[in-house]
Design a protein around this nucleic acid. Sequence first.
DNA 1: GTGAAAGCGCTAACAT
DNA 2: ATGTTAGCGCTTTCAC
Lengths: 341, 341
Amino acid sequence: MPVTLQELAEAAGVSVATVSRALSKSSHRVKDATQQRIMALAQERGYRPNLMARGLRTEQSFTIGMIVDNIISPFTPTIIRGIQDHLAEHHYFSIITNGDSDPDVENEVMHRLISRSIDGIIFVEPWMRGRSPVLDVEHKPYVVVHRLLGGTARHMVMVDDQYGAHIAVEHLLNLGHRTIGFINGPRGWESAVNRLIGYRFGLAEHGIAYAPALVRDGDWELESGYAATVALMLLPERPTAIFAANDLMALGAIYAAQDAGLQVPRDLAVVGYDDRELARLSRPTITTVTLPCYEMGRAAATMLLQLLGPGAAEDAAMAIQGTLIVRQSSGAPEGHRRLVS
Amino acid sequence: MPVTLQELAEAAGVSVATVSRALSKSSHRVKDATQQRIMALAQERGYRPNLMARGLRTEQSFTIGMIVDNIISPFTPTIIRGIQDHLAEHHYFSIITNGDSDPDVENEVMHRLISRSIDGIIFVEPWMRGRSPVLDVEHKPYVVVHRLLGGTARHMVMVDDQYGAHIAVEHLLNLGHRTIGFINGPRGWESAVNRLIGYRFGLAEHGIAYAPALVRDGDWELESGYAATVALMLLPERPTAIFAANDLMALGAIYAAQDAGLQVPRDLAVVGYDDRELARLSRPTITTVTLPCYEMGRAAATMLLQLLGPGAAEDAAMAIQGTLIVRQSSGAPEGHRRLVS
DNA sequence: GTGAAAGCGCTAACAT
DNA sequence: ATGTTAGCGCTTTCAC
């Protein structure tokens, strides 16, 4: 049977109140001698507070809920890890549940989490529209990470997609490319919109006119990258480089180029996005922009714990920047000097 | 403020005990009329039981702990998903923590989980040796999934690696191969030992003598698969097929073959293990044996909930079988992925 | 500086 | 069939 405060109190010859005070940094002070004695005793008997009892009393569980869309999805585990590492440093634990792309499931799960007296919630790629009336009413703070389909949340952490697309395109421009195809994600995705902005901004900076024909909408899958590349190769002014909005489509682009007898990067440079494992394994390896999942997770956890602390809860939206990882698939095109590594 | 039993009791004009009984299937019966009235009232006011309070009383939290080695690892999320899906069906939640390949961390985390009154624990690829004195003393049941470094646990769910290796080799034998190289994992890994047994058993079944020279130890990484293949190709009796103990090394084998001017599968057939994403993306796509992570997770959760229920807790060890996925690398006639839609 | 006592929301043994 | 009561382990006034 686990050791309780009462047992400690009897053994030390004091009251439970004193033991409680000695073990937690309470406002009331305890005489140093007794404090030492009690702490030694607790150590010796292996006392561990019953957190359910404490939570019942203090209305604080040191547990937060996480509603992820699906834990089996490429970026989610890394985001979770970022969250958990920060939580662990503050002695918080997390209960993770899947929302399964269903607002009803998310809603039900939210209630069940509240039922467990969690202190707050982090939504990872949720399907709800950014505001949760339920949580607002219950005064449970929440933070949204990575994706938000419409609406805005008061507290959120996103990727800086404009920046990411910008550095990708800039890399190709610095290599001397002037005709750069862009295989984007499907219309309607926030990240697709922002990556297009970043792409256009990069071109504009270098005084290159935007040509809509160079932009194709993929669906994030390899096949769509392949098809888009085939189409781009048929253009009168053939692109010498392609920026794909994710690594999967970039790999499709590479396969299409190879099937057309082109060599990557010699005949066609390719840059991806996400830095998935495949970008390190493919031949050639793929130059890509990292999705800063771990950092986003950490940022979200930091934000939530701040909300849990004292002080005003101001609205906050963070955008985390990825970095460019240069690999084999991008290279200086023939006749051009490599300007930046 | 959340609705409590007491509020419901006052509103219904009965005692809290009656409300409690009406809402939970207690052994004591409540008059149908009052029961209906109370349930309607609870529904109307959105009553949700405070699970911390209930847990404090019943010593049951309907929460289990999960200690995974690292949530960012290829198989873990799928195992977790399997566990969570089964738990959800029984209204259990799970608290997931990382053990980080460190028995001390695992131990500390275990204590902190107990402190939260979890009902049981599932270890996913743990570093502890199979038995936890702490949990045994606390009478907290636990199940180990997927990997166990030495020792045995009373309750565990593993992969049937002998079977997996067997069907892989059998596939190659059925294709007519007689000299089959085997790139295994490092010595000392349980799964490497078992996969070797499966390999040898497959050969023996077809009356083929075991040739130690055909077996190489890799370290699970792509490069080791590459190096092993280069070595195997130099043998006097060159293998016409290679079975690699994971997909990464299989990809290394394919690259080595390609660099040697050989075509896969025409000149060398390759079979992997795990069915990672890369097996579907590489060129050629890789024939492989699935690691039944989801099923293992489900089995583990089932086992644990059984332990939590009434009845004797017999020791149990399950081995789950994967299946063979035939793709291009072993010469599947119609295993080609469609690239253009 | 320490103790006594109340109570968080719930269930279960004991009454009626 | 329902009410009364005790208590799970803890924190926190309120006394002294």
